[in-house]
């Protein structure tokens, strides 16, 4: 028996919004430690890794490890039927081929349930090596989303250059060149507005705007985003999900042809 309950459906809606542009379907691996999802996008350029800890749920029970392959378009249709403030409960029997998603209004006067067929997905799990990153940048998630959106107008690619002075995002194309520099913030009143750079050595990497923009669909989940970079390895873009877990996106760099 698997049962996981969250106080607000809005969190689940935001999580789905953060992955459904990259993935058509995905397997949710459930165990007593929580729910994990790891999947590559269709073109195998990026990898999404979602971790939701069992202690972040209002109620969590998972008697046996369970892998639930879900069509994310179908899940989106179901979540559309929830009000943001509704409680949401996911339930499945052991070895079931369906999952039930139930919404309850705060006053419990409206209860709806949706049974969704599960899929057998033949997904490859990849082992992600530990990396000592050259640069780790923490910055406001909204600012990162804005920069990715703005630079995508100028080029398919953005160059991220990180030094101890700051981080520079550049794009160059037919229109010309765009550069956005962010300096590390001195003292800030609000932690969520800070730009913090931890640098071992400077790094310059090139990434496809299209994927960065897809990752920024996670912006509503978190006030800050963390970018971890190292020469010739994938960028890690991480959004914390408060009290519940995190979503990480890995993006392979563009390399000299």
């Amino acid at each position: 028996m698997f049962e996981a309950r969250l106080g607000q459906a809005t969190i689940l809606k935001k999580i789905l919004d953060a992955i459904k542009d990259l993935l058509n379907e995905a397997t949710f691996d459930c165990s007593d430690s929580g729910i994990q999802l790891q999947a590559m996008d269709n073109s195998h350029v990026s990898l999404v890794s979602l971790t939701l800890r069992s202690d972040g749920f209002d109620k969590f029970r998972c008697d046996r490890n369970l892998s639930m392959g879900m069509n994310l378009g179908s899940m989106a249709k179901i979540l559309k039927c929830a009000n943001n403030e509704d409680n949401v409960t996911m339930k499945a029997q052991d070895n079931a081929d369906t999952v039930t998603i139930m919404f309850e209004s705060a006053n419990q006067e409206k209860v709806s349930d949706y049974e969704m067929k599960l899929m057998n997905l033949d997904q490859e799990h990849l082992g992600i090596p530990e990396t000592d990153f050259s640069c780790v940048v923490r910055m406001p998630a909204m600012e990162f989303a804005r920069i990715c959106r703005d630079l995508a107008q100028f080029s398919e690619s953005v160059v991220i250059c990180c030094t101890k002075e700051g981080v520079k995002f550049s794009a160059s194309g037919d229109v010309g060149t765009a550069n956005i520099k962010l300096a590390q913030t001195g003292s800030v009143d609000k932690e969520e507005e800070a730009v913090i750079i931890e640098m071992q050595e400077p790094v310059t990497l090139t990434f496809a705007c299209r994927y960065l923009n897809a990752f920024t669909k996670a912006t509503p989940l978190s006030t800050q985003v963390q970018l971890s970079m190292c020469a010739d390895v994938p960028l890690v873009v991480e959004y914390a999900i408060k009290d519940l877990g995190h979503i990480r996106y890995y993006l392979a760099p563009k390399i000299e042809d």
Partner: peptide, 14 residues
Amino acid sequence: KTKQAGIMSFFSKK
């Protein structure tokens, strides 16, 4: 000119 690398060239299959 740059070309897009695939993610599987960085991570091993489990």
